[in-house]
Simulated assay, not measured.
Amino acid sequence: MPRGTLEVILISAKGIDDNDFLSSIDPYVILTYRTQEHKSTVQEDSGSKPQWNESFLFTVSDSTSELNLKIMDKDNFTQDDFLGEATIDLGPLFEAGSLPETVHKVVKDEEYCGEIKVALTFTAERNEEQEYSVEDENYGGWKESNEEF
């Protein structure tokens, strides 16, 4: 069961549907892992190619292995519009430790509607049990080097 810190670097998106009538969309992203939620800054008038370059931290304490990225369009006088979302499987990240900048499909109503680019890092929590064990004493330590003499 992985425990530690998940760092999400939200880089950019492209191909997002620019559906605002009189101006460009003002996209932002709601990042959700379990019950933890973060919100990116709003990229005003950035249209279908917003750039964020923001970092977000989540606490990982169980085997939940999905990160959800919901792209929204900030509206001043009406409810914000849902533009699409990407769900990222974190299983490979927990094994590898980090995943470089990767493009993920953004979907709305089960149809492709753009891409979002993120980089991910998982830092496992170290506890006292992991730091030292009696077995470690048998490898490469004083006992082993002493046997040669």
Rank of each mutant, 00 (worst) to 15 (best):
G4S: 09
T5K: 14
L6C: 09
E7C: 09
E7G: 02
L10A: 06
K14F: 05
D17V: 05
D18Y: 02
S23M: 12
S23E: 15
S24T: 10
P27K: 01
P27E: 10
V29K: 00
Y33R: 07
R34Y: 04
Q36H: 11
Q36M: 06
E37C: 00
Q43Y: 01
E44H: 14
S46C: 01
S46V: 01
G47I: 02
S48A: 06
N53T: 07
E54R: 08
E54F: 03
S55L: 04
L57D: 14
T59P: 01
T59H: 03
V60N: 03
S63H: 12
E66R: 14
L69E: 03
L69T: 01
K70F: 02
D75K: 13
N76M: 14
N76A: 15
F77H: 14
Q79E: 15
Q79I: 12
D81G: 02
D81E: 11
L83V: 02
D89W: 05
G91L: 14
P92M: 09
P92Y: 13
A96H: 13
A96R: 14
A96P: 13
A96Q: 15
L99M: 14
P100N: 11
K105W: 01
V106I: 09
E111R: 06
G114I: 03
G114Y: 01
E115A: 03
K117C: 06
A119H: 09
T123K: 15
E125N: 07
E129K: 08
E129F: 03
S133E: 13
E135R: 04
N138D: 10
N138I: 05
G140Q: 08
K143A: 08
K143S: 06
E144V: 04
S145Y: 05
E148R: 08
